[in-house]
Design a protein around this nucleic acid. Sequence first.
DNA 1: CATTCTCGAAAACGGTCGTTCTCCTACGGT
DNA 2: ACCGTAGGAGAACGACCGTTTTCGAGAATG
Lengths: 194, 194
Amino acid sequence: MSEVEPETTEQRILDAAEELFYGRGIQSVGMDAIRTASGVPLKRLYQTFPSKDTLVEAYLRRRDARWLRDLAQYVDTYDSPEQRILAVFDWLFLWFSEQGFRGCGFINSFGELGATSQTVADIAKAHKDAFRRYLADLVAVADAPAWLTDQLVLLAEGAMTTAAISGTPEHARHAKDAARTLLRAAHAGVVTAA
Amino acid sequence: MSEVEPETTEQRILDAAEELFYGRGIQSVGMDAIRTASGVPLKRLYQTFPSKDTLVEAYLRRRDARWLRDLAQYVDTYDSPEQRILAVFDWLFLWFSEQGFRGCGFINSFGELGATSQTVADIAKAHKDAFRRYLADLVAVADAPAWLTDQLVLLAEGAMTTAAISGTPEHARHAKDAARTLLRAAHAGVVTAA
DNA sequence: CATTCTCGAAAACGGTCGTTCTCCTACGGT
DNA sequence: ACCGTAGGAGAACGACCGTTTTCGAGAATG
């Protein structure tokens, strides 16, 4: 019962791992760096996560769940279906403005390890699918055509990578502007087939 | 004068390096794999590129130039300013459909090494800037407002990452549909301010 | 107090990687 | 034929990394 700190060992490891993996890339971070950052000795670290691969997997899964939860919490502060769709891009702006923002952790890990690790590729795909399903719900509630979802996904994903590489959050505003135009066009029944 | 093959040593190295770096990620590829794939012995490899870092840099620079050149060549087969803009997304579809497509090499290398190597981060940024300038030209010639450029960039970048992770090229079509809608809205003078 | 057990710090191990070096073959010039 | 040199194949080296093991300092128990 020496639980002085509220944080469990697993959480301390995952906190350190997330900051390092996200901030520097996965392969650039050794287990020793995670040990130093978390203060958890190597022995206990390997008792909690039997390999670096499992730790990477746990990092991605926790980040996946928290990212979608935070997004939904923000969107839930709006009522109007149209505003809820646009709120997604406001939330992106807040995220892009955070110190240490370095793009989408799943796009980054897919680019780094997707060809090597099927697990990482699958988790990234599942994350993007979940995001797409969330947007599809918002679109359905707003009575917009289903294909608007695909367009909004592209704007959001494009904003993430562009914001990461350029280092400025303003691209979320541009995405929101475009989303508003597409939303209005969809509601107006403007069919954009060739 | 034993130049039987038209390829120079440097080209053979870069060809092998590009296929491996792009296909598996940079840190996952050792110099020995490049030696095997290129058939160039290690000694000559290091005479041509004094370190892995310089080889990575050369890989990125050559890919940058060729990518933009290929895009422009395709777009140049169209005359109408509007069709030239939309042709960008047709070219993306062709690119996404190529065997071994694994997303944008610059987004990938930025996610993997951008935090560690300022050089890689700079090259990725320069590549995206050049792409943006190219789109800005197309937009200007089409007499569309400058801010349309920002929106088109987001659609293109989003299509790249979404196509990479999902593994299907259709997202280029969705991006083209959205681009057409945004282009029409811009020409109609629909202001999308809040 | 003696003993056993727990646990953290750090050394050690095996493998890989970037880079250099060695050795050997083959050829060119005289 | 002989020698010098270039060039290629691969061993070698030093550093690092993921993982395991050792060692010693306490705490718990009799």
